[in-house]
Simulated scan of single mutants.
Amino acid sequence: MMHFADSLTFSGRKVVAAWAALPFPALAGSSLPDILSAHQQDVPWKLLSSWREQKVSCCFAQSVVLRGICKEKATSCPGQPRSPLQSCESPEEVLQQYLHTQFPGAFSTAHVLQQPCDTRPPFPQFFSPLLTRQGFLLDKAQGSPSAGVESMPVLAALQSSPVLHSLLSGLCRDLGAWNPRRCSSFFTAGVEQGDFQEALEELKTLSQCYETGFGADGSADEADSD
């Protein structure tokens, strides 16, 4: 676990953002190369961290786990060359190749497990009627929504990326505008004003670790891609 944490939090970066796809958008019987090929413009998972969502075009490091996608063979049109994703030998290689394409230069680890996520009660049934009982997408709703979704493919990711610069710097601004003297319990707990200011400076320094140095376009940090 320590090695895993170190692989995501190098160069002074101690925070990662959580992303997930619940469910992972897949049609029943579709292959992983075909699914990911349909998401070349943007990754099919969403930011879970408490910040306005931003499209992330680069990251420093990430770990991605996908569950519940069967090892179906990729489809290809006769006479057309196979894509890089279709040429991969295993689901892990497919996901790794996709991550490399979407986030070139980033340190990425990929794991694919066949067992889906169990969503039977007491798991809350808040899913769309456009899902099968196994959590795969339908073209149109079928059956009763009350039938419930028993399992589904899911993806979870931890990512160290420039989006955290905005999150942490925003938190730093909000805390800097707050006067802790108005909260008597704050100092009753033994926190000194100097300690509070020191923590703010450390938070500001931490946020700067996620700057890419290439402006707002999200280009990769060359220092981390070497």
Rank of each mutant, 00 (worst) to 15 (best):
L66D: 08
S63E: 07
K55A: 04
S76E: 12
K55I: 13
Q41I: 05
V56N: 11
Q54H: 13
H39K: 08
C77W: 01
S31L: 07
W45F: 07
S57N: 12
D42L: 06
K46F: 13
S63N: 10
F60T: 13
K46I: 07
E72M: 11
H39S: 14
P44C: 04
S76Y: 05
F60L: 06
L32F: 02
E53Y: 09
P44H: 10
A74P: 01
S49A: 08
L32K: 01
R52V: 14
K71W: 02
A74K: 03
W45R: 03
L66I: 08
Q80M: 00
Q41R: 15
L27G: 13
R67V: 02
I69L: 02
V56L: 10
Q80N: 11
D42S: 11
C59P: 01
C58D: 05
S76D: 03
S76V: 14
Q80S: 00
P25R: 03
L36M: 07
W51D: 13
I69F: 13
L32W: 02
Q40M: 14
A28N: 14
T75P: 00
F60V: 06
V64R: 15
L32A: 05
Q54V: 14
L66F: 05
F60H: 08
A26P: 01
G68H: 15
R52A: 01
K71V: 06
W51V: 03
S57Y: 07
G79R: 00
D34L: 14
C70Y: 07
L47A: 14
L66V: 04
P78V: 02
P81T: 04
P33M: 06
K73A: 12
E72T: 14
F60M: 10
K46Q: 07
Q80C: 00
Q40Y: 13
D34P: 06
C70L: 06
H39E: 14
L36W: 12
S76Q: 13
V56K: 05
D34F: 12
R82C: 00
